[in-house]
Nucleic acid binder design. Structure first.
Lengths: 380, 380
DNA sequence: TCCTTTGGTGAGGACTCCTAACTTGAAATG
DNA sequence: CATTTCAAGTTAGGAGTCCTCACCAAAGGA
């Protein structure tokens, strides 16, 4: 609402931020290089570097320039800044990494979980992975970004069990599980949203500010990217499409998840999609397989009509264990092309996309944490 | 990506912005009052006021303080800043206003259009209204914000005719129609989006950062507010729900607009909803009316399931000629309450909401235009 | 008439950024 | 090996911005 109050302190903070951002983009720079990169004069940069060195944010690497001219000192972000934790939790296991402010990965821990490991095991694995990484990188974990294969409450970061949706990871509260290992905030979101971010930054939706990412796997979900940001909605449940009203096998209206029940494609005693069986059908050659493929295409088409109406995407990206299957893409596209408002359709291209997206967010968040820590007096 | 470069010019610009924003919030202030309101020191404010007066943005009103102490001079935004045009175009006519940077309305013009006036008449009425207002306020129209009762292309501001959707206002290109009367940018969006903004700022969704506004009138539309902003999507067609797949009268899946065809509630030779007939049914007491009401509630319920899945709203606001009808609200709520993810439902409360929303945007936009004009050298 | 009160101005200081010139020390050059 | 070249970094000085503090001016109240 109100513009910031002008002050010389604000100006100095801006100089420090420029210097820090330069050192986040290039791992080591001399003061003269920082000056040319930022466009700030050499004396001002020198002052700022001195301030930041005293504050412990920047350190002389000990390396020196070689070549003609005076020997220069290379500076870099202090290794004592610590790292950020990135973790992905799926029913199959936990993968965790530590990343620094330059976006470099400093370690990776992987824990496989048995089929019915339960949420306690997942929580323990996450906490253990964090401790392991903390020890390995030898510095504090300043924040964490967690991906979970379930809906996440936006306000608390806890996993949410919605009616008639599979609860793959189970009740888990990452912020409290990680409270001991991580000194700062713990950001949690579901894997589909992180995957969408990854496709936006490095994948097939690069630079597309408005798109929808449809995830079709054991669970059914999607992500909505609007104006370049993954939108989460009030509770963080954007994209939980299990109950979206769509067309069933015989043309009757039903919830998306019910379509799989009607087609006999649910896992026994569960609301999760029976992926092996579904893939078998996708490959099938008989008339029954044709009928199921058509029914799936029609059901997905109903979901897409909703996505087009409510998100107006430039493209739709389809991912997930069976969603990205070529025959599925073809079937959906063929159906979708004949609707009143078709949109280009593409298959997701990244592997482990949720980790990529979470990592990108962790780096962003860690960087602004570091920049903020350079201005202790800023209260706005 | 990169923080702004620190410079003394930036600091000065910030002071000027603080002074201007203070004068936008209170129509006349002395320099001492500006200093206390902004928290900036008196000498600095004095310098800034002098600069802004020389630049023609601020003017001595000639009024003087009364009471104890030295007589102070009241300053205000210069009347030569001009005004912003706000206009709403519906099939029934054109309403236009001029607003200044303080948010005060300076004139209102209303032109009724005959039932089949056509788009040329609408365009002429809009241009005439703009000229009339320009003459009446005696200054330039620096920008325009237009509401139109049809989908609007986000990139060009032109109206779009979607298949099987009524084209109420018709082909119209507000930016070119207003090019002569308005010196600056012309922002166009559809009435539903503006209405949602109005309900967000002054209506029943005040401060609710994530909600969906459903408009049920001759046309069918909705607005999605996410993180406090009306989202428009890639082409500006968020909320064009005519083809959203929902449940028909007998439970079969069909496009939302087709439900009205199936119920005989479309206007002859058109895809617009026959509102008088629908209202008659809403009031009806026989079994047929019950059946139609149930069918409408079910169809709207399907749309809401999509809205909940893809936007995760905190509340849903229903407006429009028949959508806000008490019996409609009741019927929809009764149905919606029994779904897996119900959300509080409310009726829209504002009259002429699209004008209110467009006016709010016009004031915002005009204010930042004025602030920008105080920093001629800012290139970022 | 004198005191109080308040808007506005002036002087001076602290601070930030910049340009320009200078210092430094190693590599290139002869 | 002496000299030149070159680039990193420092120093000096100046311009500009904001602030505090003191002061002035003028109207109202005592």
């Amino acid at each position: 609402m109100n513009p910031p109050k002008p002050s010389l302190e604000l100006l100095r903070g801006l100089t420090d931020e420029n210097v820090l951002r330069a050192l986040m983009a290039h791992d080591r720079l001399t003061r003269a290089e920082i000056a040319t990169r930022t466009g700030i004069s050499k004396p001002t940069v020198s002052e700022s570097v001195q301030r930041l060195e005293e504050a412990g944010l920047v350190a002389d690497t000990g390396e020196r320039t070689t070549g003609r001219g005076r020997v220069g000192s290379y500076y870099a972000l202090s290794p004592r800044l610590g790292t950020a934790l990135v973790a992905s939790i799926t029913p199959h296991g936990v993968v965790a990494e530590a990343v620094d402010a330059l976006g470099r990965t400093h370690g990776r821990v992987r824990t496989d979980l048995g089929a019915d490991a339960g949420q306690e095991a997942a929580g323990r694995a996450l906490a253990a992975a964090a401790e392991e990484l903390k020890g390995r990188v030898g510095g504090p974990l300043r924040l964490a970004v967690v991906s979970a294969a379930d809906p996440v409450d936006r306000a608390t970061g806890r996993l949410v069990h919605l009616p008639d949706a599979p609860f793959l990871v189970g009740a888990l509260d990452p912020p409290s599980v990680l409270a001991d290992a991580v000194t700062g905030p713990v950001l949690v979101d579901n894997d589909v949203n992180w995957a969408a971010r990854a496709e936006y930054e490095h994948g097939c939706a690069q630079g597309v500010d408005d798109f929808v990412y449809l995830h079709l796997g054991e669970g059914l979900g999607c992500a909505v990217v609007s104006d370049g940001v993954v939108r989460r909605g009030h509770r963080g449940l954007v994209g939980e499409i299990a109950h979206l009203c769509t067309a069933g096998p015989d043309g009757q209206a039903m919830a998306f998840t019910e379509v799989f029940a009607a087609l006999g494609l649910r896992r026994p005693a569960s609301t999760a999609v029976d992926v092996p069986k579904l893939l078998e059908v996708l490959e099938g050659r008989d008339a029954g397989a044709d009928r199921v493929r058509a029914a799936l295409a029609r059901a997905v088409g109903g979901v897409l009509s909703a996505a087009v109406s409510l998100a107006d995407p430039e493209t739709v990206v389809v991912g997930g264990t069976w969603g990205a299957h070529p025959r599925m893409i073809t079937a959906v596209e063929e159906h979708f092309r004949r609707t009143p408002r078709p949109v280009p359709l593409g298959a997701a291209v990244l592997t482990l996309p949720e980790l990529t997206g979470a990592r990108a967010r962790a780096v962003d968040e860690f960087r602004s944490l570091v920049v903020r820590s350079a201005r202790p007096a800023a209260h706005g």
